[in-house]
């Protein structure tokens, strides 16, 4: 294997090398050090936080984490987020894989026009739809319930998920189905037994995207619910400042706990997660 994309020669190399590492280390510091600061501070007393900001905690205050669990109601917040994200991801996959199947395998009037209309949905700034979503949720009688968020997240993700799944299904060869049709497989059988299993990689990508969107969504979680019992994790974090009042380090512990699961999952599945999150732009 030849040496490719080397780093130049002579003085430019030294200069370029230094500049290169300055850039890389700067962004490493910016990304990583604040998180580390938060983690270490979450084990301190509040006095230490003020007086010895850059020292290690004298005694590691695991009690902060016990406080955090007690005050923040984290288990409930996590449960709500898991329910909302899982159900809305499942619904989005069902609805858009059915539509993607029809759009990619069948011919019918207004097919292209309808598809373009759905895909144009990605251009709509969803934040602009606060007022109608609020009214709609109220008229459906689901305001202040997890269903409000489940339906909203499912619907919001329809354009991007249709785009990803339609794009994937379109590349599957037709011959696969032709053999099945000879054997008498019907419409539903072609979708369920042939196309859907083959679309799994596309569904994993789209599903990751939808799940992370739903997990991290904040605006509509705030607008469409009000009871503490239906708060999702992201909404719950917002109330930490009032719940913990001046017990900052316990609040930091609670914030760390909210970050932990996604970070652990990311460490295990980072390739898949990066692919899922960037696929919307990459396919363009």
């Amino acid at each position: 294997m030849s040496i490719v994309r080397t780093n130049g020669r002579g003085t430019t190399q030294v200069l370029g090398n230094t500049a290169k590492w300055v850039v890389l280390i700067f962004f490493f510091t910016f990304t990583f050090i604040p998180l580390l600061w938060l983690l270490i501070s979450s084990f301190k007393t509040n006095l230490e936080l003020q007086l010895k900001p850059f020292a290690m905690p004298e005694i590691w205050q695991f009690a902060n984490y016990a406080n955090a669990m007690k005050i923040s109601g984290l288990p409930r917040l996590f449960l709500n987020s898991i329910i909302v994200s899982t159900v809305s991801t499942g619904l989005t996959m069902i609805v858009t894989s059915m539509a993607g199947f029809v759009f990619s395998r069948e011919r019918f009037p207004f097919r292209q026009g309808l598809l373009n209309l759905i895909l144009a949905g990605v251009l709509v700034p969803i934040i602009a739809l606060m007022a109608p979503y609020f009214r709609l949720t109220n008229s459906l009688g689901i305001y202040d319930s997890l269903w409000a968020l489940i339906f909203t997240y499912t619907a919001i993700n329809i354009p991007i998920s249709t785009f990803l799944l339609y794009g994937f299904m379109r590349t599957l060869p037709r011959e696969l189905e032709e053999a099945a049709i000879m054997d008498g497989t019907g419409f539903v059988g072609r979708y369920w037994r042939i196309i859907l299993p083959l679309t799994k990689p596309g569904m994993v990508t789209a599903g990751t995207f939808v799940f992370l969107f739903s997990w991290n969504e904040f605006i509509y979680a705030m607008l469409l619910t009000s009871r503490p019992a239906v708060r999702t994790l992201q909404l719950g974090i917002r109330f930490f400042t009032s719940q913990f009042f001046t017990d900052y380090t316990s609040m930091f512990a609670a914030i760390v706990l909210t970050m932990l699961p996604t970070i652990v999952i990311y460490i295990v599945l980072h390739e898949q997660i990066i692919k899922g999150m960037t696929s919307g732009a990459l396919k363009g």
């Binding site: 962004f27 991290n216 904040f218 999150m277």
Partner: peptide, 11 residues
């Protein structure tokens, strides 16, 4: 560098 993207904007 990608890590912050898996943490919510709120956190």
């Amino acid at each position: 560098y990608f890590l912050p993207n898996v943490i919510s904007q709120v956190a």
